[in-house]
């Protein structure tokens, strides 16, 4: 379902990076491992359609990403992807509930209140749903970010360094949660990390080496 061939990307600084071909099957969990600067985030952004000026090919559900017009790419991303970013950046002006509902709205999907409540409930955030996101603890904020990424049942969940700021206990909890929601939603989970603790949790691993040239 996700496959790349001869993928390469030129940075504005005229450095370029080449990636080994990869193939990720539907519902497969996958770890992108590598030190910082190894191009993990670049690859994630390429796979997520956030970077669209690449050489080679990226096919997602048999769509060549760079060939989709920008608007269609935006809609495609909204419907098919769920992103969990390192900083779990939430929209501060909105409540927990509205942060999650934003996923439906921005992806042009019908607002499903039941689904939102169900997801918040399963993540133990139901009674926090009217709170402002500034009142949440780090762990709660991360769970809201996960809820936001999965509420619209995307086929691909992309997580960028979800555990780097967490202790062992919370690291395990978050990974369990991500794997669980991914399997519940029948989504593909792609996690980029330099966190060696995750090596034992996800079998399929892609190692990125410092390949700048």
């Amino acid at each position: 379902m996700i496959s790349t061939t001869k993928l390469a990307f030129n940075y504005p600084s005229s450095d370029s990076i080449h990636f080994n071909d990869l193939e990720i099957a539907p519902r497969e969990d996958c770890l992108l491992l590598g030190e910082s600067g190894s191009g993990k985030t670049t690859l994630l952004h390429l796979l997520g359609g956030l970077l669209r000026t690449y050489q080679g090919s990226i096919k997602v559900n048999s769509n060549e990403l760079k060939e989709l017009p920008e608007k269609e790419m935006d809609f495609f991303r909204g419907k098919q992807y769920g992103f969990v970013f390192q900083k779990n950046h939430l929209i501060h002006a909105l409540t927990v509930e509205k942060n999650v509902l934003l996923s439906f709205y921005l992806a042009n999907l019908p607002i499903n209140m039941e689904r939102m409540k169900e997801v918040l409930d399963s993540l133990g955030l139901y009674n926090k749903r009217k709170s402002r996101v500034t009142q949440l603890s780090y762990g709660q904020a991360q769970r809201v970010a996960i809820a936001r990424a999965i509420v619209h049942r995307p086929s691909i969940i992309i997580a960028d360094e979800p555990t780097s700021a967490l202790d062992d206990q919370n690291c395990n909890k978050v990974m369990e949660l991500l794997l669980q929601v991914a399997s519940q939603n029948e989504s593909t989970l792609i996690v980029a990390t330099h966190d060696q603790r995750l090596k034992g949790i996800i079998k399929k691993q892609i190692h990125l080496h410092h390949a700048m040239r």
Partner: peptide, 10 residues
Amino acid sequence: AIMRSMGATR
């Protein structure tokens, strides 16, 4: 940027 990643167009 987050909203763009969630499907919002420019």
